[in-house]
Design a protein around this nucleic acid. Structure first.
Lengths: 206, 206
DNA sequence: ATTTTTTTATTGAACGTTCAATCAATAAAA
DNA sequence: TTTTATTGATTGAACGTTCAATAAAAAAAT
């Protein structure tokens, strides 16, 4: 089996296997052996490519955050209309794509979220991402309302997005992405209406 | 030290110590020895009073949920005004009391929340509580808007509450309860205004 | 009031299990 | 033949649980 240039392949296999394991039994019962079995390799290989279990977990969280950032960026660059409402709408859509809002990624995300409370490295990653979401939202809101109101709108919408997503990860049926997007967009429209902005026509699903 | 009637005292001591330990190092690194040291007793006593570590964790989550339910119930029964807006306002206030929204209870709650994804017993407790919050909100909203809209309003507000609370638990500075309450109340007012209800005067802090 | 007995609460060392990490051995490709 | 990738048995540490021993309080007896 040893072929040259296995590194990137194995790394991706192991990261995917980690999400699958966390989805299956939770972070607490995710052992290196279980991950290795999912990937069809031996346990020792994890230390070889990631230096240890922690390294693999960190790489996995990093990939989830990267995917999320990418999903938002793609939609924002695809906008014809550069209005604040369009930008924020794209951020909402991106956050409810999340590569695959259902399946392993969702539970893995929540597991890392909780874990990041006490692991400095994960907390750092978490924080960088949070700040970017907030500052993007705040910047767009400021184009149509005063600073203090923009701050509140950004915090409210960020909380709404996370709350919808969190509740979706916990319900056995998984997140209803359509309903979640509808609620977030409705809230966004209310925030704009509250400041007398012209609100574009109603949202139809993508 | 053996005095008669220690059971309720020790049980409470151990539950409090569990929250302190989870707040300190997280659920993953909370060992029976660490809990015991916090409570000033030996490790063996945990199995004696709770049957094992899992029993203690379950009892701890149960207490947190009970405290939350109590905080809401107290405020709702203290209402002079029985209007839907007043009831929902009381639910918001209760959810941001959470016995002590800052400190050990907050992080413990989030830790259990994540853990409940894969532990059936915790998931059951979690679910019962979630349903109560949702059905209470839904019932009040239905008094002023059609069924479908009430459903969405209840889901949106529940998501907002959880999202604010979740973000508060993750920021190192802890949750700013005043700001969180303001955002939730503002959202509530918007939901009511959207259906042309008379919205009472603005909220000042308690 | 003192001593003895019984009951209750608590300890902590020992045990068995589980897990992450290591590394010498192996096997396929170059 | 050399290089690269991978294995898997082994090691040592950490953990939850158990249980015989202990010690304090309460009850009973003197």
């Amino acid at each position: 089996m040893p072929k040259v240039g296995m590194e990137p392949i194995r790394r991706q296999q192991l990261i995917t296997a980690t999400m699958a394991a966390i989805d299956e039994v939770g972070l607490a019962e995710t052992t290196v052996m279980r991950i290795a079995r999912h990937a069809g390799v031996s346990a020792g290989i994890i230390s070889h490519y990631f230096g240890g279990k922690d390294g693999l977990l960190e790489a996995t969280m990093r990939q989830i955050l990267t995917d999320l950032t990418g999903a938002v960026a793609v939609r924002r660059h695809a906008l014809e209309d550069g209005s604040p409402h369009a930008h924020i709408g794209a951020i909402i859509e991106g956050n409810f794509d999340r590569t695959q809002v259902t399946g392993p990624a969702a539970k893995t995300w929540l597991a890392f979220w909780a874990s990041s409370m006490h692991k400095p490295m994960l907390q750092r990653l978490q924080n960088v991402n949070d700040r970017r979401l907030y500052s993007n939202l705040c910047h767009q809101f400021r184009r149509v309302m005063p600073r203090a109101e923009a701050r509140n709108a950004a915090r409210g919408l960020a909380a709404m997005i996370d709350g919808l997503w969190l509740r979706g990860a916990l319900t056995p049926e998984g997140l209803d992405a359509d309903e979640a997007r509808l609620l977030a967009h409705t809230y966004l429209d209310q925030l704009f209406a509250h400041y007398g902005c012209t609100t574009p026509a109603s949202h139809t699903n993508s």
